[in-house]
């Protein structure tokens, strides 16, 4: 019979094994993507426009579109999410209205992204006549990201110590002054970390964008930077296929002979971006924390 001490050891070993297995899986996944992708990536691939039906196209416009949609989405969701977070944590008393708000956030968070995508197709693309466009895509992504951002904001604000808040109020500051000058400032490290992490997820989203930002992109001419001009890359009513959507498209719609190399390269770029978001979020998080505690 195995002694209880030995069985403990075996059980512990099994759990180490599971942890090892999962870590190896991650390394293998990322290693596979980078190994296949880095052979494809070069300056031309990163900047050139895709070829509709020949080999040798790049992913330049897709990278630009992904970044543009990400930045616009963040410009919308960060203030909105912060607003809801502040309202829930600072102003609202538990009531029927806060319960409704919370149920809404929870429902929105659990909606499948394809459902939000076809909602966007119906409302933004068709009823509001925005077409397959940057704007439709940004609005769909905002609906997708808003619940995440709200929770983040609420948690970050709630983590600010009560003493700080009470001290500020005791010094005669109003509630709003306390929120903007004390609570938000103290919550910044938590907020920034969360925002950058969720940016990584927005960057990789595809299902919500198929039917909103579209699966095509026009030729981008960077000599025209006026966002109200039809030909500008910054024009909000042009279709904007993102990097993640492009990977899906070259696999299904793609007519290029080098479709699999393109998918390899684009996957690697996507993964590198996500890794970068992850690292940056860690660095800024600890940097801001040090800076704050250093003062």
């Amino acid at each position: 019979m195995i002694s209880s001490r030995n069985s403990e050891r075996i059980a512990t070993a099994i759990f180490y094994l599971i942890a090892l297995l999962v870590s190896v899986l991650l390394v293998a996944l990322i290693g596979y993507i980078l190994y296949h992708g880095l052979r494809v990536i070069n300056w031309h691939f990163l900047t050139a426009a895709p070829q509709p039906f020949q080999a040798g196209g790049g992913i330049g416009p897709e990278i630009f579109n992904s970044l543009m949609l990400l930045i616009l989405t963040m410009l919308l969701t960060v203030p909105l999410g912060l607003g809801v977070g502040i309202y829930l944590s600072e102003f609202a008393r538990e009531s029927r209205i806060t319960r409704i708000i919370r149920i809404c956030i929870e429902s929105l968070a659990s909606m499948p992204s394809i459902v939000i995508g076809i909602f966007g197709l119906m409302l933004f693309v068709t009823i509001l006549k925005c077409g397959f466009s940057v704007l439709s895509g940004v609005m769909a992504l905002t609906a997708l990201n808003l619940p995440v951002m709200t929770r983040l904001a609420e948690d970050a604000i709630k983590n600010v110590s009560k003493d700080l808040r009470e001290a500020s109020l005791a010094l005669g500051a109003t509630q709003w002054q306390t929120i903007t000058n004390v609570v938000l400032v103290a919550a910044i490290p938590g907020l920034v970390t969360g925002v950058i992490l969720s940016a990584g997820r927005v960057f990789g989203e595809a299902a919500a964008l198929l039917y909103t930002a579209g699966i095509t992109t026009p030729a981008l001419h960077f000599n025209d930077v006026n966002p109200f001009s039809n030909n500008s890359p910054f024009y909000l009513f042009r279709p904007a296929e993102t990097l993640a959507v492009h990977i899906w498209k070259v696999n299904s719609e793609g007519l290029n002979p080098d479709a699999s190399q393109i998918a390899d390269g684009a996957s690697a770029v996507l993964i590198i971006m996500v890794l970068l978001f992850n690292l940056v979020s860690r660095w800024t998080g600890s940097w801001l924390f040090n800076k704050k505690t250093g003062q």
Partner: peptide, 26 residues
């Protein structure tokens, strides 16, 4: 400024309700 703050953030909360409700209804 207190009031403005309260109502702006409340407006954000109303917006999230509107978005959710319009998705569900549609």
């Amino acid at each position: 400024s207190n009031k403005i703050g309260k109502y702006t953030t409340f407006a954000c909360a109303i917006l999230i309700i509107t978005i959710t409700m319009s998705i569900i209804l549609l």
